[in-house]
Amino acid sequence: MQVRPEETVAEFVGASKRYGEVLAADRIDLRIRRGEFLSFLGPSGCGKTTALRMLAGFESPTGGAVLIDGRDVGAIPAYRRPVNMVFQHYALFPHMTVAENVGYGLRQRRPRMARREIAEKVEKALATVRLDAFGPRRIWEMSGGQQQRVALARAIVNEPKILLLDEPMAALDAKLRGEMQRELLDLQRSLGITFVLVTHDQEEALAMSDRICIMGKGRIAQIGSPQELYDRPANRYVADFVGKANILSAQIASREGGLAQAVLGNGAAVTVADAPGAAATEAEIAVRPEALSLAAAGAPLPEGMTALPARVTHRTFLGDHTEYLLEAPRVGALQVNVPRQAERAAGGHGMGAEVHVLWPAGAGLVLAAG
């Protein structure tokens, strides 16, 4: 979707950052929409944190520009930008109470704010994160999840236009992380502030984001909604990083109407979605594990599916589904995720079992080169 200028709260215009010989960010072009939840997602060293720090004002671009509300902020220090950041380890002051931590930024403003006004803003911020009665407590008396809420309250009390989140849930356990994800989403929707999250956790980005910016080698590999990135990854890098995918070599026999007829290494033909503008006859195909299913080797095969002979090499029960790893001759390793109800109906397949991997027409996608 094209972003209209009035919808844009921040923008990277050919923004680059070099540390000596290392190019950490390479000509990033990106418009951040007002009120959206945007995530930078990628492995360590991909440039996502560098992008966030340039937006925050902790780093200055060595090329290009960073704009907020259409204004180049390259010469504006971090403390004068309309942004606030929640750090991975929260950076709270242990010698201060919760209320003193939340009000710290307000007390630094010039001209000075009245104490009563500061107290009212602090009280409102704590209520927003559901810590109304915790103002007098010390930081060391708070749990990890409560400390994160204190950090959020301290960030939103200044009413920033953009709230930056630098892997704020990395230190939380899985259950608390899920709870905090929902709380962050509720907070973002109630405040209407633009949230920009940096994370290496793909599930976190998929669960929370309006759009995800996949980073690799300092550049944007692809940007889109979670569903767009999952269903239509631009290349192998994105397909590998967002969710799980079987990536197989194939020969493209024909193309028509956005579909491709692909021949796998064992000679089996499958119908898959084609990549826009693709023309090569040799290609890689990505197919998600949940798009495939299994049948016992001797069972009758349903119509409209390609059957690939395979052997079960690993079987892992994961509660709502069972993960099968298989070896298909002249095709390679495959992963198939079978929902629990289907597993119960079929009776499951043991280690070493000979099975058929069933590939429905239209499952899978030809990946663009790169």
Results as ranks from 00 to 15, higher is better:
Met142Ile: 08
Gly277Ser: 04
Val336His: 00
Ile285Cys: 00
Ala345Arg: 09
Thr199Leu: 05
Leu334Gln: 08
Ser254Pro: 05
Val331Trp: 00
Arg4Leu: 03
Ile162Cys: 04
Arg211Gln: 15
Phe87Trp: 07
Val366Arg: 02
Leu172Pro: 08
Tyr19Cys: 14
Ala119Val: 06
Met142Pro: 10
Gly352Met: 05
Gly63Pro: 07
Glu256Trp: 07
Asp320Ile: 04
Leu229Pro: 14
Arg311Met: 00
Trp359Asn: 10
Pro5Ala: 08
Val102Thr: 03
Gln261Glu: 11
Leu131Asn: 04
Ala275Gly: 05
Arg288Ser: 07
Leu325Thr: 03
Ala239Met: 04
Pro82Ser: 12
Pro82Phe: 09
Glu117Cys: 11
Arg80Glu: 10
Ser254Ala: 12
Val366Lys: 01
Arg31Val: 11
Ser190Arg: 15
Pro309Lys: 14
Ala361Met: 12
Ala299Ser: 13
Ala15Gln: 02
Ser143Phe: 06
Arg154Pro: 04
Ala253Glu: 14
Gly64Trp: 05
Ser143Asn: 06
Asp26Glu: 04
Met142Arg: 05
Met96Ile: 03
Pro43Asn: 10
Pro61Ser: 05
Leu365Met: 12
Ala207His: 14
Tyr230Ala: 10
Glu36Arg: 02
Ala170Ser: 15
Pro339Cys: 13
Val150Glu: 05
Met351Trp: 08
Arg116Ala: 15
Glu141Thr: 03
Glu167Gly: 10
Asn101His: 09
Asp320His: 14
Ala174Arg: 13
Ala15Ser: 07
Pro302Ser: 13
Glu354Arg: 12
Gly144Asn: 06
Gln148Ser: 11
Val263Asn: 00
Ala328Gln: 02
Ala268Asn: 02
Arg255Phe: 09
Gly347Ser: 09
Ile223Glu: 12
Tyr104Ser: 08
Pro300Lys: 06
Val22Arg: 05
Asp231Pro: 01
Ile212His: 07
Ile32Cys: 08
Arg112Trp: 08
Phe317Val: 13
Pro339Glu: 10
Ala125Asp: 06
Asp166Phe: 09
Arg177His: 12
Arg53Lys: 13
Tyr230Asn: 05
Ile247Pro: 04
His321Ala: 13
Ile212Ala: 11
Ala207Cys: 07
Gln341Ala: 14
Gln341Phe: 06
Leu325Gly: 10
Gly364Val: 01
Ala268Gly: 03
Arg315His: 02
Lys244Val: 01
His349Met: 02
Ile285Ala: 07
Ala328Gly: 01
Ala56Val: 11
Gly42Thr: 04
Tyr19Asp: 09
Leu131Tyr: 01
Met169Gly: 10
Gly42Glu: 01
Val366Met: 06
Phe58Cys: 14
Gln147Lys: 09
Arg154Cys: 01
Val83Thr: 12
Val287Asn: 08
Ile162Lys: 03
Gly352Asp: 00
Ile214Tyr: 07
